[in-house]
Design a protein around this nucleic acid. Structure first.
Lengths: 260, 260
DNA sequence: TCACAATTCTCATTTTATAAGAAATTTATT
DNA sequence: AATAAATTTCTTATAAAATGAGAATTGTGA
């Protein structure tokens, strides 16, 4: 264990289910002497990546809240897309969850979400949540914009039930790519149906999607055209805004560089 | 520069105003050879604490979104208090911003916020934002629960305009502590007025506050009793729920420890 | 395709981390 | 209040890792 991994391994122990650990527990879990862990934890507490709670427990520190905020207010995708999620929710014909998600390494992560107030069910679509790569429209609209070797590598890391499944998946991907949008039913949460469009910006390295998720019970076929129209319109707008933000950033860096 | 600081120094460069940096820029800024920075940045990209953007720029990575989410769904204060912010907003006589904040090291940080939809003005009260320690009711309700040497140390780090100011501050603190609630006007944002109550849990090491912020223009004296009643009622409820969550955590750790 | 910028690699040297156990401090118990 | 137990820090020789200069490689835009 060396370099940043030393710290990362400790942070990775913390989860929603298990959000506080003692040094002894960490030490046992990582098979590392407690004197070493004490020193490392102390460092991380100083840096506010951990904080000490009661009864010699430690939990994740405020640094994450702080940096999350910086991302939220500066990430071009979130900045451009966030405002449209509420609009989508209001204009969709039925109650919905609306999501911006993007590819991070080999995972799809939800980076912003807005649920209509009347949407009661709990869903997997919440900012920060990792989504399965090959299930759900949200993810599909992301990977359908990826091709060639890169797609192959991504897909090879996934466990398909059978080779048939994999072939079908790739075939669907191809036809969805042509259409420019996609939908899936119950792949992530039972009783939910999702529609999504791709969002991308090559210069910023963004491979993302905008999606609306509905209760299957509420859904009627006649809703479909409106849903697609909304997603397509707002999807394009988000891309346009991302581009504007990109240009702002360019200009800003140009200015600050020339000042120095 | 050693240990975790090595990484922290780099992360600390990123801000809302300047959210992407090239290796060369980092290297200049930290006066460290670029070959070293390249290595460190690579490590952090692997760990998803940074990610590469376009044009050889790097920005904060998805790890922060992930860990922020874990905190949001597991921090006892946020879990207990979040649901009441909306209720407060609905039951307050005038449009308001409602905030849970807590002491982190020498800073007060907002950890949850809910703005009534009709509240138009932008405010400093947003999750993740650091608040000044000695200004505003939000902060006051936190430090008024701290006494003795600890209070002295905290206060000594602050820059008061004069010794008079400092004395007055300490005097106000004392009387507010007796009352159990406090209010301030325009100390953080001009034209806003804030009311707050203390929230604490010794066992969990939580020193926090619940506050409602209003437009000064909307405010009438007759609103005051209702505002205080709401804050006090919900404040107590939040403390009660924090306690319940604490007991759940206890139970959970007891179970998981006895299994091993 | 070429030139230039970005990134990785190599390696001798310096610096830092490690872990066992002792010491100190804090917390719980009688 | 005294004692016991648990938590945390400190000390140290030794092992391991980081550093940085420069070379080598890769990527990129005209």
């Amino acid at each position: 264990m060396s370099g940043f991994q030393r710290y990362k391994k400790i942070l990775d122990l913390f989860s929603e289910e298990r959000s506080s650990w003692t040094v002894i527990e960490i030490s046992k879990s990582l098979k590392t002497p407690s004197s070493t862990i004490y020193r490392i934890v102390r460092e991380m507490v100083t840096a506010e990546f951990l904080e000490s709670a009661s009864g010699s427990y430690f939990r994740l520190g405020p640094a994450f809240i702080k940096f999350n905020r910086i991302i939220k207010f500066s990430d071009p995708l979130v900045r451009a897309g966030q405002p449209f999620l509420k609009k989508l929710a209001n204009e969709n014909p039925i109650t919905s969850v609306n999501v911006l998600a993007r590819l991070y390494g080999n995972n799809v992560m939800c980076v912003a979400d807005y649920k209509s107030p009347s949407f009661k069910k709990n869903t997997s679509y919440q900012r920060g949540k990792l989504m399965p790569l090959i299930y759900g429209a949200t993810s599909r609209a992301i990977i359908m914009q990826i091709t060639g070797k890169r797609l192959e590598n991504l897909i090879n890391l996934e466990n398909f039930k059978s080779d048939e499944d994999k072939k079908k998946f790739l075939k669907d991907l191809k036809s969805d790519r042509k259409k420019g949008y996609c939908f899936t039913e119950g792949q992530v949460d039972k009783g939910l149906i999702g529609f999504a469009v791709s969002i991308s910006n090559k210069k910023l390295g963004i491979e993302a999607s905008l999606s609306s998720i509905f209760n299957l019970d509420d859904f009627l076929l006649e809703h479909e055209p409106i849903i697609y129209a909304n997603l397509t319109t707002y999807g394009l707008l988000v891309e346009k805004y991302i581009n504007e933000i990109f240009e702002d950033i360019q200009k800003y860096h140009h200015e600050t560089n020339s000042i120095r």
